[in-house]
């Protein structure tokens, strides 16, 4: 069953040197429960495609359907609600809120939902245990290693149980051993049923994914299982 359908999506940017094509007409279908890697050189359009799938970046043309919902047909505020229920993001450089503790960072997506403090805390503890950080809950992000910060970012992405995880270069700032640990974590989350789309340019990561899509110049070049 197709969970994500990208239909002939284009994205053009205006720069000082004229129009730049970030996506030149992309078609992609992601099935429920897939673990997909988007590969490509810098500037190939993979991160743009990820942000378009994530309902963050309206395309210039084409459609994005997630769970049969045309996400860019929704108003900006409805799209925010949609992101809250459907998508968990793991950003490059972790993007944790520096003034919040580990557990508070994980609770951020829950603060706008109808959970009381006790329920929020229990949900956050549960996912922090899953990523192996239950004993570092009260620390601030700058008191953690890069790998630990990545784990917090993953815990934050899955705490409200969205069906899709979008990860942008999740191992880009980590050494290979820590990066492998993170990929194993993604793999186990995928085995639990989460659909994961990950942007990477590290070929080592491909052994953990189910399908790889290569991009070049804003177009999909080939797909491998």
């Amino acid at each position: 069953m197709a969970l994500i359908e990208v239909k002939n999506v284009t994205k053009f940017y205006n720069s000082g040197e004229g129009q730049v094509t970030a996506l030149g007409g992309v078609n992609l279908t992601v099935q429920k429960g897939e673990f997909l890697a988007l590969m490509g050189d810098s500037g190939s359009g993979k991160s743009t495609l990820l942000s378009v799938i994530g309902a963050l970046n309206p395309p210039t043309g084409g459609k994005v359907l997630i769970d049969d919902i045309d996400v860019y047909d929704l108003s900006s505020e409805r799209r925010a609600d949609f992101r809250s229920s459907y998508i968990g993001f793991v950003f490059q450089q972790f993007q944790l809120i520096q003034y919040l503790t580990v557990v508070e960072n994980v609770m951020v997506p829950l603060a706008i939902l109808n959970y009381n403090h006790k329920e929020q805390l229990e949900m956050a503890k549960k996912v922090l245990k899953k990523v192996g950080l239950e004993n570092k809950m009260r620390r601030l992000p700058n008191q953690l290693s890069g790998g630990e910060q990545e784990r917090v970012a993953i815990a934050r992405a899955i705490v409200n149980e969205p069906p899709i995880i979008l990860a942008d270069e999740p191992t880009g700032s980590l050494d290979s051993k820590t990066g492998e640990g993170i990929m194993r974590l993604f793999q186990s989350l995928n085995r639990e049923g989460l659909t994961i789309v990950m942007v990477t340019h590290n070929r080592e990561n491909l052994k953990f994914v189910k399908r790889t899509v290569s991009m070049k110049d804003g177009l999909i070049k080939n797909q491998e299982n």
Binding site: G54, L56, S76, E77, A80, D81, F82, R83, S84, S85, F89, F91, Q95, I97, V108, P109, I112, R156
Partner: peptide
């Protein structure tokens, strides 16, 4: 900007 972008990406509305 980046921090507020993260909140918005996680589903925070403008009113939030």
């Amino acid at each position: 900007v980046s921090e507020i972008g993260i909140y918005r990406a996680m589903g925070y509305r403008r009113s939030n």
